[in-house]
Design a protein around this nucleic acid. Sequence first.
DNA 1: ACAATACTGGATAAACTTATCCAGTATTCG
DNA 2: CGAATACTGGATAAGTTTATCCAGTATTGT
Lengths: 147, 147
Amino acid sequence: MFTQTVEYALRALVALAAQPDTPQTTRGLAKVTKVPAPYLSKVLQLLTRAELVLAHRGVRGGFSLGRPADEITILEAVTAVDPIQRIKTCPLGLKAHGKHLCPLHKKMDAALAEVEAAFGSTTLADVLAEPTRSVPLCPFPRVAKPA
Amino acid sequence: MFTQTVEYALRALVALAAQPDTPQTTRGLAKVTKVPAPYLSKVLQLLTRAELVLAHRGVRGGFSLGRPADEITILEAVTAVDPIQRIKTCPLGLKAHGKHLCPLHKKMDAALAEVEAAFGSTTLADVLAEPTRSVPLCPFPRVAKPA
DNA sequence: ACAATACTGGATAAACTTATCCAGTATTCG
DNA sequence: CGAATACTGGATAAGTTTATCCAGTATTGT
């Protein structure tokens, strides 16, 4: 339902949000997110172009969030890498009924709208804030950093 | 967001539901649904295996609904051709936290659950019944059949 | 300035989805 | 039975998404 690219982008953003102070290198992100590094690199490029993250080159470079975590929604991330395509006109191309969707496509689009709404109202900060049984959560401990 | 295959399957089912009495041939369905016939054929095979439709061979053969339109949900159709993959365990494979999803994946799965619920509670009959401004609707006039 | 680091962009390959084709088999009708 | 119809299943091709590789460029710290 969601593409790999979306999944990867969200993982990367959450990882960045979890470590807001220091830029994270592609390799480092690849490690914690378990995303193939070369591909993650492409995904990060997309996020960079959308200005959701900032790229810093050179020594001590890497990526950091372009805005505070509470100002970046999941929807923006999705839109940056693989936009949800709302159904705006009849996919059959019937111009018979102008812009009115048939019931089938109305229903499908309604589902898309729901997802959009849910994602649009959730920020990276929301995701990180969620209390999760105190167990170290799936994406990326907030502190971490062993030897 | 939804695959072509899902889109095609739904179109075909709605078309079948609109003409419940006579079996519809692949070519006929391809025409009204505007789906490439050879591919539609494959999709219909999937629907047949799921017993959502019945295949009749030979002269006057074709496909018909396997059950009344008000007993087939959109979700069943989706499941037959391209199941919604709910997120049940951490995609990162971290067994650290057993079966608890991290907040990110909980959120994503919640969106999937919403779609599932919406689709699970909508039948083909619902789709056809929807009052659509009396304009001939996108998929398939109920009567039709010109020369 | 130099060397090391790290992102950028383009080219390429692998995997999967979508689309096509065809020979085989079952069914209806005369 | 014979001929026409129509689904079935397997093989193949085209198109997208996912993944990899590498040379180029910018940045940092010495």
